[in-house]
Nucleic acid binder design. Structure first.
Length: 597
RNA sequence: GUCUCGGUAGCUCAGCUGGAUAGAGCAACGGCCUUCUAAGCCGUAGGUCCUGGGUUCGAAUCCCCGCCGGGAUACCA
């Protein structure tokens, strides 16, 4: 049981003892004591004044007396206005440090057989263009969220549904057929997803030209959009694809494979992976049966043109189309099918969709529809909705060429990391391979931390000129601190200093050391909070605070040069524990930390 | 129109399940490398927490009317 829980219980007891009232423990508001006051844990006593019918100061003093006498960890207390500041004994903090240091899984909850199985869907790319900054946010959030759920004792299946069919894919295919001249990733040296993406752009260019020509010939814009040869060609390819025309299927498979090979490289670079991949081409027909069942059961209704709809006006929403008049599926239909499929494939307790907030309405409707269809998991779906990444000039638009390409961005950041590192003269003695690995680690650390430290539900701004920064509240700052700690520990080992990892209860701690231990002790709570809030940002901001504190400590105190061996040992144990906490926390964010930088 | 998310320092963001003088980083200015990594540390300056009401002992935080911005809103996925 944590010290907060113990004190909380004892406060309930104290109220009962002093004022003969049984109170709900929810009334007990504990917080960390602000740095400017003496103490570790603070009780806000205002809520108890009605019960005590005494002044805040007197009430606080009476509760303080009781705690001091009945809780061994409470050494003394002081009262400032309505705040009761409790001073916890140093020996308690020493024991916290000892157990944090000794526990290799400090802060993490292990999964057991009884753990919930959570499926996390993320990434979900289209196979007609390469990944961009928006996908990066999705991938990083999805991966980190999975790690957070694991750290809270859940079993996690990471899944990716690849949108590999539809008119947009046919556009790339059409462009390749018309203007491709047999280009392949192999004969051009262009990464497969980029090559296919180039043809998607090419399609749009030609399509626009054709529209302009037709308009010049007297057609309206709407007519021209329907009659342009390119769009007719793409539609024909879609029909052939659905008719399973071997040549079309062959081209589709070939071009998709180029894209997958490209994605694999990007995913590997980003350090994200999946346990199960679904392909929409294989699942897009599944939902239709469910919708027809719903229609037969009277859950849905049919219009004269034979399209099928759901009436959601009772839920305060609109009517939603589920099957077109020609009987084909829409996006929603497919997601119904995919959901059912997944719950058949795995004993899922909780389904999480990592999808942008532009689809809030979609998932709200999906949840209701599945519930109406009688799936008990319907209501429990969780849409992890995150905000857009914006550029200084506004939203990214792939057709206007204002997207920040994922591969380009990573490459550029690696380059900046290398230049910075070389300028600072770090990594001397490293082999080129080791150095390259470290540059990549730093670059990705910067990118990942930059994105993950922001509250997921908020839109965020990415400024290519300014956002690539390695100083201040950044990933490299944290990595640097870790490398410093490792360096100290390496030197300690070189000097054959043995670390005694179990500090005696009587160990004396300087203020800064105490603060560091308190920060470390918050790690498990932080992991839990991140799990409850579905927020990697909670972890990121915690690590930053911890690291800032360590740097102050590092600056203020000598570790290896300390002549008093007891003090030196204490500082080594603290450093080691902080280092371990940094590493574990960063791992949850999907960020690696280097031994040197 | 309706629904929804947001508005905190010049910029990017914390803080938001109500608590003590609203915090960081960047940018600006000034200090600290013969001592464990200066990708660091210390300091100065910078705020009507969008406006206005309400609830409360106490509101950046909760509720309501506005204003501004993003997104969604019946046959794209």
């Amino acid at each position: 049981m944590s010290i907060e829980q113990i004190i909380s219980e004892k406060i309930v007891e104290a109220i009962n003892h002093c004022y003969q009232q049984q109170i709900d423990s929810k009334l007990v508001q504990l917080q960390n004591t602000r740095k400017e006051f003496e103490g570790d844990i603070t009780l806000v006593v205002f809520p108890f004044l009605k019960i005590s019918k005494k002044s805040p100061e007197q009430t606080a003093a009476e509760i303080g007396d009781y705690l001091q006498q009945n809780v061994s960890e409470v050494e003394k207390y002081n009262v400032v206005k309505g705040f009761l500041n409790l001073v916890i004994s140093q020996s308690y903090w020493v024991s916290v440090l000892n157990s944090a240091n000794a526990d290799p899984k400090f802060g993490l909850t292990q999964a057991t057989e009884k753990s919930k199985l959570v499926m996390v869907e993320y990434s979900s790319p289209n196979t007609n263009k390469p990944l961009h900054l928006g996908h990066i946010r999705n991938n990083l959030l999805g991966f980190s969220l999975s790690e957070i759920l694991k750290a809270n004792g859940n079993k996690v299946v990471k899944t990716n549904i690849v949108n590999d069919r539809g008119i947009h894919i046919c556009k790339s295919m059409y462009a390749w057929k018309m203007w491709g001249n047999g280009q392949t990733p192999e004969n051009t040296g262009i990464k497969g997803d980029h090559l296919v993406g180039d043809f998607y752009v090419k399609f749009d260019q030609e399509y626009k030209k054709e529209i302009a020509e037709l308009v010049a010939q007297g057609q309206t814009k709407e007519e021209a959009e329907q009659n342009a040869p390119s769009i007719l060609g793409a539609r024909e390819l879609l029909l052939r694809w659905e008719a399973k025309d071997p040549e079309t299927i062959g081209l589709w498979k070939t071009m998709n494979q180029w894209v997958y090979n490209g994605f694999d490289v990007t995913y590997k670079e980003l350090g994200v992976d999946f346990d199960k991949i679904y392909y929409e081409s294989e699942t897009y027909l599944y939902g239709k049966g469910e919708v027809l069942r719903g229609l037969a059961e009277g859950v849905f209704y049919q219009k004269e043109d034979s399209s099928v709809w759901a009436d959601l006006t009772a839920e305060g929403l609109d009517h939603k189309l589920l099957l077109r008049s020609d009987g084909t599926s829409v996006y929603m239909t497919q997601d119904i099918g995919t959901a059912k499929e997944r719950f058949q494939d795995y004993p899922i307790d909780k389904m999480v969709y990592v999808v942008g907030n532009e689809q809030n309405y979609h998932f709200q409707v999906l949840s209701i529809l599945l519930d109406k269809l009688g799936f008990e998991f319907g209501k429990g779906l969780h849409h992890f909705s995150y905000g857009m990444v914006e550029l200084p000039q506004g939203k990214m638009k792939s057709r206007e060429g204002t997207v920040v390409d994922a591969d380009d961005l990573v490459a550029e950041m690696v380059d900046v990391a290398r230049r910075t590192s070389e300028e600072l003269g770090k990594l001397e003695g490293y082999t080129p391979e080791q150095a390259a690995e470290t540059y990549k680690m730093i670059a990705l650390g910067a990118l990942k931390y930059f994105i993950l430290k922001v509250d997921p539900k908020k839109n965020m701004l990415f400024n290519p000129q300014e956002s690539i920064d390695f100083n201040g509240n950044t990933g490299p700052f944290i990595q640097y601190t870790y490398a410093r700690i490792r360096s100290v520990l390496r030197k300690a080992a070189d000097r054959e200093i043995e670390i005694n990892r179990t500090l005696p209860a009587s160990t004396e701690l300087a203020l800064k050391e105490l603060q560091l231990i308190k920060s470390v002790s918050q790690f498990p709570v932080t992991v839990k909070e991140a799990g409850e809030m579905y927020s990697p940002a909670v972890i990121a901001n915690y690590i930053y605070e911890l690291v800032k504190e360590f740097n102050q400590f590092y600056h203020e105190f000598s570790i290896l040069a300390e002549e008093n061996e007891t003090k030196r040992n204490t500082r080594l144990v603290i450093s080691e524990t902080v280092g371990k906490t940094i590493k574990t926390g960063m791992k949850i964010l999907g960020i690696d930390v280097p031994e040197r930088m």
